[in-house]
Design a protein around this nucleic acid. Sequence first.
DNA 1: GCTGAAACTCATTACGT
DNA 2: ACGTAATGAGTTTCAGC
Lengths: 155, 155
Amino acid sequence: MSALDDTDFAILRLLAEDAGQGAGAIGRACGLSQPAAWRRIKRLRDAGIVGGQRLVLDAEALGFGVTVFLGVKLATKGRVSLEDFERAVSAIPEVQTVEHVLGLYDYRLRVVARDLPDFERVLRRRIMTLPGAGEVEANVLLSEERRPGPLGGRH
Amino acid sequence: MSALDDTDFAILRLLAEDAGQGAGAIGRACGLSQPAAWRRIKRLRDAGIVGGQRLVLDAEALGFGVTVFLGVKLATKGRVSLEDFERAVSAIPEVQTVEHVLGLYDYRLRVVARDLPDFERVLRRRIMTLPGAGEVEANVLLSEERRPGPLGGRH
DNA sequence: GCTGAAACTCATTACGT
DNA sequence: ACGTAATGAGTTTCAGC
């Protein structure tokens, strides 16, 4: 796995802003010919640095106006309870992200709902009934900003 | 804003798995001609339901083996302190996500670092010095599962 | 690495059902 | 709202420099 140079980071930064553009546009933007840019992008893909590309869906436009982050503390921790919990939580469609974490909580969930009454339904009928779920903490999303993360700059 | 039908949700589900495929592949997968699929995708874009497509970068392959979620409670809350905090936190390259939330904490941050010593450096020199930052809670990411979210099924 | 040029796919429009 | 057909642009691959 050879090290990435500045051009690779420039490509990643360009693709992080808009993954829709092709090798031609990338090449023009960083002074590379189209095949050269295409080869570098393929190398980044093959190396597993670029995992894929996901859609950015507007939850609000889809009718889901409420996003809540839940911190979940398990009541009983063990091999089995972790797997049971993960399997059960994966079956809830309103759960967008399941993060197994270390710290004050055991799991962090990102949950969407149409509105607050709908969220209460999800919380009472889906989340609180999860196997092994103990303490639950909630944070309602007001606004969100996503950034590319550290890509090549000096820190 | 006309309602979405099952075919639209099928398209969103296909694109949520891999946003890289074009209208032709989408059409083949759900029994539509290429222009028909293309028109529906364009309609979803124009309606703002599809915001764009982002790269999925493997942080570990980029040398960032540690991901930490921080819950931040502001010491002083007010119009100015929110803006100051957001501006300052946006200047930290290691911060991937800034979520303004309602609840026990005021902000949730997703932070990446090369390793735990590197994270301690970010925490002490970047996070703890943020203007107005009060209590900080941390959760280290062990594993993560992302799911498309509720797309059209009956709930 | 680049250029050039195939072959192929895709995006986009036009037209008819 | 769909399909077929057609066009132009972009992508991918393979040469040779």
